[in-house]
Amino acid sequence: MNRAADGAPPCQRLPAGGLAKMSGARRKFPRRIEALEEVFAFLQDFAAEHGFGERTFYAINLVVEELFTNMVRHNIGGGDHIILGLDHDDEQVHLELVDLDVEPFDPATVADVAVDGGIDSRRPGGLGVYLVKKLVDDVAYDYDAAERRMRISVKKSLEQ
């Protein structure tokens, strides 16, 4: 499986299932940037309950913020809520964001940011998805056209 140190992994198709299989926590959040405070509180409670380290906690905060804000900003016409699911096993934390009544948007289609140049060579856009891909082990994407449902699933190694 791709690790962050090996470079950005491609997004992969998810198998059928998803949240229904998760035994962890899940919650709906209003589709607005101001809901981030509630999202972070949800992450804090889950991380504290399961003893995540600081580095893992920082990473999942950032990953969820990037994916959540992308859904708020780009999935115009989407439903009122975004669903966030959390789970983990002995090695990884599993994050899942579900957006309803939206057009398909696969984060893998976002070009990687060129990060080696100076300030004049940088172009706006794409940094959030780039950070997500660098911080996690797997990003998987699924779109159900019949239900107009987008699901992004992420696995992130727990720090040892």
Partner: peptide
């Protein structure tokens, strides 16, 4: 250290 890591990944050390 966490913010420094994010700056490193983003290439902001060049900026």
């Amino acid at each position: 250290p966490h913010i420094r890591e994010i700056f490193h990944i983003a290439g902001f050390e060049h900026i």
